[in-house]
């Protein structure tokens, strides 16, 4: 299994921590799914007030790896300063880097992303960039020092699944040694299983779990699907074909007429 900056994860589910009905439900979702990474969004206005610290403490108490993110940042400067704050609050070098370029699709600004990734990597951060499936951008991110790539499945929060299977498959084939995480856009566990069957290393999601009627049950469903997809990929699935291929030989069957 590919590792994430030297860290091996116990399962392929990275779970966001926003939008849950309550922190108790959030904690239950982590417990039921065994998710190995918690992403948490910071904003510059968070400050260091004690009231703000209460929620960070709940996240630390989950006992999983914390991956702070720069969600909602629209510029390189904003993303970089959020990353610095995250490093202070959570004492981790990991940062999920989001530089949003378009408000309606929350599509990443890939130019700003590459620039911010370079700045942060030089500063000692281990960057998890939220990107598209564009191979050229992916290559620039690797050159900027990223050792993990996180292409989107579909726009954040849309629940549409894997919008560009061809592009994602190409990405997997093009970067066989780079850990790849599908980040955003999934709505159903079957979509997560499909991504893992393509050979992706992990799934990052939030809304599909947090906004489900029973978030903990949905988290467990995703974890199960991820592990099924992972096993299927390891088991080397058969190739599809156009014609039927009988699973039982017909030669030698008795003629009854």
């Amino acid at each position: 299994m590919r590792d994430f900056y030297g860290t091996e994860l116990s399962n392929g589910l990275m779970l966001g921590t926003a939008q849950y009905p309550s922190p108790a439900v959030l904690a239950d979702a982590f417990k039921r799914s065994g998710a190995s990474v918690a992403t948490v969004s910071l904003r510059r206005e968070s400050g260091q007030d004690r009231a703000g610290q209460d929620f960070w403490q709940l996240i630390r108490d989950l006992g999983v790896h914390v991956l702070p993110n720069t969600a909602g940042c629209h510029s390189v400067k904003e993303a970089v300063s959020t990353a610095h704050m995250a490093r202070e609050v959570f004492a981790t070098k990991w940062i999920k880097l989001e530089v949003i370029g378009e408000e309606d699709t929350l599509q990443p600004d890939v130019f700003g992303l590459v620039e911010a990734a370079r700045i942060l990597t030089e500063d000692g951060f281990q960057v998890f960039p939220y990107t598209t499936e564009d191979l050229v951008v992916a290559d620039k991110l690797l050159q900027a020092g990223c050792e993990v790539l996180m292409p989107w499945g579909a726009p954040i929060g849309s629940g549409l699944g894997l919008n560009n299977i061809f592009g994602l498959r190409a990405m997997r084939a093009h970067f066989p040694d780079v850990p790849l995480v599908i980040d955003a856009g999934l709505g159903l566990p079957s979509q997560a299983a499909a991504a893992m069957e393509l050979g992706f290393d992990a799934i990052l999601l939030n809304t599909a779990v947090a906004k489900a009627g029973d978030p903990a049950l949905m988290a467990q469903a995703f974890a199960t699907a991820i592990s099924a997809g992972q096993m299927a990929h390891a088991a080397d699935p058969m190739e599809p074909r156009d014609m039927a291929a009988p699973s039982t030989p017909v030669i030698g069957k008795a003629f009854l007429e």
Binding site: A18, P23, V40, L42, R43, E45, S46, G47, D49, R50, A51, G52, D54, F55, W56, I59
Partner: peptide
């Protein structure tokens, strides 16, 4: 807003 505090309303 979880995990955010402050005495003032944000512009956002």
């Amino acid at each position: 807003v979880e995990g955010r505090a402050g005495k003032h309303v944000t512009a956002r």
